[in-house]
């Protein structure tokens, strides 16, 4: 696996290859055909497949989600792109009341092969309505699958899997991950739901990092190493269905679990993962747990406050250190510039 490409290119390539393979795949959303082409993830596709299969839409998230549902009822496989996850709030009726429920409430007569791509923002003053990671909303509702790939490899494999899936998939991208590079095979392949990936082996504490927080967990693992602690790092990849088993097996070994979400903690993905692991291990293994995520406030744009809003590698390492030691140690590793540019490497 020699070829290294960016997350953006991986998303673009997956879309291109699936549109080439299957004429029923179509792509639309605000600005998918404009010069910026959604960070480049849709670049060239309007030219290649024409304006009927790739088109920018009116600013009508609610109706356009319903349009995607109607298209999928008619046998198309739409990919609906939202440059901000925050905008999905305008589409919740269609997503929750129809997309999630149609197969069931129509007794299996219909199904909706629908992909909804949405992006989470961070930094540069994104602020209250350009930073929200609301994947847990969608995990809560039966009938939706949720993928939050971290690496370019998983970005391509999950998107192809999502497009080929006969049911609705929420595909969550973090804008900062768009810049990441990593090994990606050129031929198509899928990364199916239900299998988390252990990204670093360890024995002392299990770190689960969701979406962008996987990167911070990988950095935290290196900090912990310098503190004499071997962390095991897990990327869930798919949040729904969630591979609780792989995480629980890791915690059975380590006895300590720190779940770092790129989102709020209350009723969140981290809470769900902690609950699933403790349900599995109760009575069999004593477990110490910790959730980390957004501060329980609205995201502030000013850097001095925004830096405090997010967990980072050092605060994660500090929390994991305390879990291992069993009490607050006040250990916070010195910042290391060599960990800033962690990139994803195989093999997978």
């Amino acid at each position: 696996m020699d070829r290294t490409i960016s997350y953006v290119e991986a998303v673009r390539e997956a879309t291109d290859q699936e549109m080439e393979r299957d004429a029923s795949v179509i792509l639309f959303g605000l600005d998918v055909d404009d010069p910026k082409a959604i960070q480049g993830t849709t670049r060239g596709l309007a030219q290649k497949y024409g304006p009927e299969r790739v088109f920018g839409t009116p600013l009508s998230e609610d109706a356009m989600t319903g349009v995607a549902i109607g298209m999928s009822l008619a046998g198309l496989r739409p990919i609906h792109v939202h440059i901000r996850m925050d905008f999905l709030m305008l589409a919740m009726n269609q997503l929750i009341n129809i997309a999630a429920k149609s197969r069931y409430m129509y007794g299996g007569q219909v199904h909706l092969p629908l992909v909804v791509r949405s992006m989470i923002g961070k930094s540069w003053g994104q602020g209250a309505q350009h930073s929200q990671a609301l994947h847990s909303f969608f995990m809560h509702v039966p009938g939706l699958k949720v993928a939050a790939p971290t690496t370019p490899y998983d970005a391509k494999g999950c998107l192809i899997e999502a497009i080929r899936d006969d049911d609705p998939v929420m595909y969550v991208e973090h804008r900062i991950l768009h810049f990441q590079k990593g090994p990606v095979p050129e031929p198509t392949y899928t990364v199916p739901p239900g299998k988390a990936r252990i990204t670093v082996k360890g024995k002392d504490v299990t770190l689960v990092g969701i979406s962008y927080m996987q990167v911070e967990c990988l950095r935290a693992q290196r900090y912990l190493e310098s503190g004499g602690i071997q962390a095991e790092v897990i990327d869930p990849i798919w949040l729904s269905p969630l591979d609780g088993e792989t995480i629980a097996e890791s915690v059975r070994k380590t006895g300590r679990l720190c779940v770092v979400d790129n989102g709020w903690m209350t009723c969140g993905a981290a809470a769900e993962i902690v609950a699933q692991v403790t349900e599995r291990l109760q009575g069999a293994r004593e477990v110490r747990v910790r959730r980390m995520g957004f501060a329980p406030v609205t995201c502030p744009p000013t850097p001095s406050l925004e830096n405090l809003f997010y967990p980072n590698a050092r605060t994660i390492a500090s929390a994991a250190y305390d879990l291992v030691k069993g009490s607050a140690q006040g250990w916070l590793p010195e910042e290391r510039t060599d960990l800033r540019e962690i990139e994803f490497r195989g093999p997978f």
Partner: peptide, 24 residues
Amino acid sequence: VMGASAVVGTTIPHAAGYAYALKL
């Protein structure tokens, strides 16, 4: 008969999406 919703207005865009597919 492609479905009906209890939430008012909800199926209007489904018809538009289906029509888009027919046109395509």
